[in-house]
């Protein structure tokens, strides 16, 4: 259903978050680094929950579940 771009989108996000994390950690702003990581996780989770909802709907329809 989705092409490969979702994988690269999440991978890009992960790389950006990790670079920002290490940069902020070097700059001594530890808590901002963790804030950036947290926002990265939240973004990925919203993407994933959308896909999981589609997955459950398609399972429900193919297996004729109520």
């Amino acid at each position: 259903m989705l092409s490969v771009d979702l994988i690269f989108k999440i991978a890009g996000l992960a790389i950006i978050v990790s670079v920002l994390h290490s940069v902020l950690k070097q700059a001594g702003k530890e808590e901002y680094a963790w804030l950036v990581t947290l926002t990265g996780i939240v973004i990925v989770l919203t993407l994933v929950t959308g896909l999981v909802a589609d997955f459950f709907d398609s399972v429900r329809s193919t297996f004729q579940l109520p």
Partner: peptide
């Protein structure tokens, strides 16, 4: 980022 890899592996599985 080990915590992001879980989301990514779930996306790939789906």
């Amino acid at each position: 980022r080990p915590e992001l890899s879980l989301g990514l592996s779930l996306v790939v599985g789906l």
